[in-house]
């Protein structure tokens, strides 16, 4: 029990990462609605971002903008990677949502189970 409390107190962000990834995977797997699957994908993605950002963080670290007299900065590299990843994630979401609009125009539904039925009927 103390080990779990210790984990929550020292590695709280990583615990949150694991939970967010879990929620994301659940949404992708369990949601019948395609839009909700895309939201789940985004939750999963932000979980990964949190992992990177936490790895860059150091207690007492300064924002990575060079200033006289500051000794310790947080690491700038994960910030750059995640900036890129956020933009790529939005592009990905835009394409996914465009496909969803197209699927709706074609089949008139966004429910996965109904779509599967239509496919087996064809």
């Amino acid at each position: 029990m103390t080990a779990v409390v210790d984990l929550l107190l020292t590695r709280y962000n990583y615990v949150a990462v694991v939970l967010l990834l879990g929620i994301g995977v659940y949404m992708i797997g369990a949601s019948e609605n395609l839009v909700k699957k895309v939201i789940g994908m985004n939750v999963f993605q932000t979980g990964i971002f949190l992992f990177f950002m936490t790895s860059a963080f150091v207690t007492g670290g300064h924002v990575p903008i060079i200033k006289e007299g500051v000794e310790r900065y947080v690491s700038p590299l994960p910030h750059v990677l995640i900036l890129t990843a956020i933009v790529v994630g939005v592009s990905l979401t835009a394409v996914a949502l465009a496909l969803i609009v197209r699927i709706y125009a074609e089949y008139g539904t966004l429910q996965e189970d109904v779509l599967r039925e239509i496919q087996t009927d064809e």
Binding site: A3, L7, T10, R11, Y12, N13, Y14, V15, V18, L19, L21, G22, V25, Y26, G29, T54, S55, A56, F57, V58, T59, G60, G61, R72, V74, S75, L77, P78
Partner: peptide, 27 residues
Amino acid sequence: LVAAFVLALGATVPALPAVGSPDAPVV
């Protein structure tokens, strides 16, 4: 399935450095 996934991932958390630790590999 998700519970198994979370448990498997969660098992790796103790191996990670503490949040904000100055000895963390990235920092």
